[in-house]
Simulated assay, not measured.
Amino acid sequence: MNNEKTVSVLNDLLNITNDRIEGFSKVEDKVWNTHSALKADYDQMVSQSQVMKNDLIKLINEKGGEADNTTSTAGAFHRAWIDVKNSFSSDKDETTLENVVFGEKAAIDAYQDVLDSTDLGPESSRVVSDHLHHLKSSYNKFENLEARS
């Protein structure tokens, strides 16, 4: 794959990572009264998202590209939908957890699609694969909690 295409794909993943960071800000302090044990996992997810963002920006720069450090349109629509959904929900904790699980699943699917269908080169593939591992780990934590709710 040429550098231009690789940079474009990495920028797409950067947008998704920025969507996660924005989505996490929507969740901030919404479920900690009911699920206080989850706070440390949440903080780790936020911290890991920042690391992922920095990794992607570094890869993009190394390939001679310019990082598109914005969010995606789909992510903006999803966050708006979260606001609407939360305003009508009687169980805001459950709705919040559902949204975290939905967002993590969407990110996993995007990262997996990139690894399955794109030749990013060894270094970029290793980083994206590592990110996917972290996404799956956080997804499993929240999915298990949501299932118990």
Rank of each mutant, 00 (worst) to 15 (best):
residue 1 M to P: 05
residue 4 E to R: 05
residue 5 K to T: 15
residue 5 K to C: 07
residue 5 K to W: 12
residue 6 T to S: 12
residue 8 S to N: 10
residue 10 L to R: 09
residue 11 N to P: 08
residue 12 D to T: 11
residue 13 L to H: 05
residue 13 L to W: 07
residue 15 N to D: 07
residue 17 T to V: 10
residue 17 T to H: 01
residue 19 D to V: 03
residue 22 E to K: 07
residue 22 E to C: 01
residue 23 G to N: 06
residue 24 F to A: 03
residue 27 V to M: 09
residue 30 K to H: 07
residue 31 V to Q: 08
residue 32 W to C: 01
residue 33 N to I: 04
residue 33 N to F: 06
residue 36 S to E: 11
residue 38 L to E: 13
residue 38 L to Q: 11
residue 42 Y to P: 03
residue 43 D to A: 13
residue 44 Q to D: 15
residue 45 M to K: 07
residue 46 V to I: 14
residue 46 V to C: 01
residue 48 Q to H: 12
residue 50 Q to G: 10
residue 51 V to N: 12
residue 52 M to D: 14
residue 52 M to N: 13
residue 52 M to C: 08
residue 53 K to Y: 04
residue 57 I to V: 15
residue 57 I to N: 02
residue 57 I to R: 05
residue 58 K to A: 08
residue 58 K to T: 14
residue 58 K to N: 12
residue 59 L to V: 07
residue 59 L to H: 10
residue 61 N to P: 00
residue 63 K to Y: 05
residue 63 K to H: 11
residue 64 G to L: 05
residue 69 N to V: 09
residue 69 N to A: 13
residue 69 N to S: 12
residue 70 T to C: 01
residue 71 T to P: 04
residue 73 T to V: 14
residue 73 T to Y: 09
residue 73 T to R: 10
residue 75 G to V: 03
residue 75 G to Q: 01
residue 75 G to W: 00
residue 76 A to E: 11
residue 77 F to P: 00
residue 78 H to D: 00
residue 78 H to F: 05
residue 79 R to D: 00
residue 81 W to M: 12
residue 82 I to C: 02
residue 83 D to W: 04
residue 83 D to G: 10
residue 83 D to Q: 09
residue 87 S to L: 11
residue 87 S to W: 06
residue 88 F to A: 07
residue 91 D to I: 04
residue 91 D to G: 09
residue 94 E to R: 14
residue 94 E to M: 07
residue 95 T to D: 06
residue 97 L to C: 06
residue 98 E to M: 08
residue 98 E to C: 02
residue 99 N to A: 14
residue 101 V to W: 03
residue 102 F to T: 11
residue 106 A to F: 01
residue 107 A to L: 06
residue 108 I to W: 01
residue 110 A to C: 04
residue 112 Q to A: 14
residue 115 L to N: 04
residue 115 L to R: 07
residue 115 L to Y: 09
residue 115 L to F: 06
residue 115 L to S: 05
residue 116 D to C: 08
residue 116 D to L: 11
residue 117 S to I: 00
residue 120 L to T: 08
residue 121 G to F: 08
residue 124 S to M: 09
residue 124 S to G: 00
residue 125 S to N: 11
residue 125 S to E: 14
residue 125 S to L: 01
residue 126 R to I: 08
residue 127 V to C: 06
residue 128 V to R: 02
residue 130 D to E: 15
residue 132 L to I: 09
residue 132 L to D: 03
residue 133 H to C: 03
residue 133 H to Y: 13
residue 136 K to D: 11
residue 137 S to A: 13
residue 138 S to F: 13
residue 139 Y to S: 04
residue 141 K to V: 14
residue 141 K to C: 02
residue 145 L to M: 12
residue 145 L to E: 15
residue 146 E to D: 06
residue 147 A to R: 10
residue 147 A to H: 10
residue 148 R to D: 14
